[in-house]
Amino acid sequence: MLVIHCPYCGPRPELEFRHCGQAHIARPLDPSAQTADEWGEYLYLRENPKGMHAERWRHMHGCGRFFNALRDTTTDFFVTTYKCGEPRPAVSGTAPAGGQR
């Protein structure tokens, strides 16, 4: 069970959260203008990196807010979490041992 730093509530147990897939996928403003390939990618194509992953979580059983996180999928350590609408922080390399403080 991970510890996840909710940007609103601070570090909380994973049980309170729900993973919501890749972050920063904006719904097209005009879906009808999307080609079949573009729409197919929006619906289904997701990053699956072995390494740093920008993903969404929701503090489902806490404050209820969606937020984003950078997590290293090779260690499951988070680097940071940030609110929706904020840009992906520039982070390179891997998550530090022991995880987010």
Partner: peptide
Amino acid sequence: SYNSYTQRGSL
């Protein structure tokens, strides 16, 4: 529920 390559799950 989350993507991972750690070959480890939760209790």
